[in-house]
């Protein structure tokens, strides 16, 4: 039978307040946490919250905030960092390699999220305002320029060019009747035939012009030789002749 020592009892009595204090703090934290969670849930479920969000979205404040953000250096900084750290590539690879994307899409589809989000944004005019602002501002152009000049875009283009998908697309295009019909229409169009005939006439004119120039040089040389052989004066200014117009 185990004997309890008097010293052990004393220690237990001495640590009792501390043990009680820790237990009380744990209970308090749990109660505060539960209360906060309940408050957040109540706030999110409240129709008032929805009204507040709607009001904020519809207010000019939202538009000004968006404009300020786009006008500042934020877009450039974001674009640079996105390009520098290859964020798009990494995110795309991570999403495509895992099952998270499919799971998220399934859940969102099941909850009818896309339709609700779309309807809300369309109803509030957020889409129109955002698209107008982005298209009219210089930010889109700067972001596109940065993206197009990035090595990541170059690698992406190279991968697309080397992929089998492009080869198959080209093969299908070449096999299609519509393409050759289009080519035939273009080839027999009056504009193209006119251009080709002018090109042919231009080439013939060029050859004839070259022959004319060479023959006239040969004429001049032959005459110099003949006049020298016959000890005649070189041909000076030729006498005026009949009026001659173009052929």
């Amino acid at each position: 039978m185990e004997m309890k020592s008097p010293l052990g009892g004393l220690v237990a009595v001495a640590t009792l307040p501390a043990t009680l204090a820790r237990g009380g703090a744990r209970v308090t934290r749990r109660a505060v946490g539960d209360l906060a969670e309940a408050s957040v849930n109540a706030m999110l479920e409240s129709p008032r919250t929805e009204q507040i969000v709607d009001t904020v979205l519809a207010s000019p404040l939202m538009e000004r905030t968006l404009s300020r953000a786009l006008e500042g250096q934020l877009v450039e900084a974001l674009s640079r960092d996105v390009v520098r750290y290859a964020v798009l590539e990494r995110v795309a690879e991570a999403i495509l390699e895992g099952d998270a994307l499919e799971a998220v899409l399934d859940r969102a589809g099941a909850a009818d999220v896309p339709r609700r989000v779309t309807e809300r944004m369309l109803a509030d005019g957020v889409v129109e305002r955002t698209v107008t602002r982005v298209l009219e501002g210089p930010e889109l152009e700067r972001a596109l320029t940065a993206a197009l000049e990035s090595p990541g875009m170059e690698r992406l283009v190279i991968r697309v060019m080397e992929s089998r998908l492009l080869d198959e697309a080209v093969e299908r295009l070449l096999d299609s009747e519509e393409l050759w019909l289009l080519v035939r229409e273009i080839a027999y169009s009056p504009e193209v035939t006119d251009a080709l005939s002018h090109q042919g006439v231009g080439f013939a004119d060029q050859v004839a012009g070259s022959v004319r120039a060479r023959s006239r040089r040969a004429d001049a040389w032959l005459e110099r030789v003949a006049r020298r052989a016959l000890r005649r004066k070189p041909a000076g200014e030729l006498p005026p002749g009949p009026p001659v117009g173009p052929a």
Partner: peptide, 14 residues
């Protein structure tokens, strides 16, 4: 009439 120009006589080779 087209404006008359000084004629250029053509030689043997041409």
């Amino acid at each position: 009439l087209t404006e008359a120009t000084a004629p250029v006589y053509e030689g043997l080779v041409t």
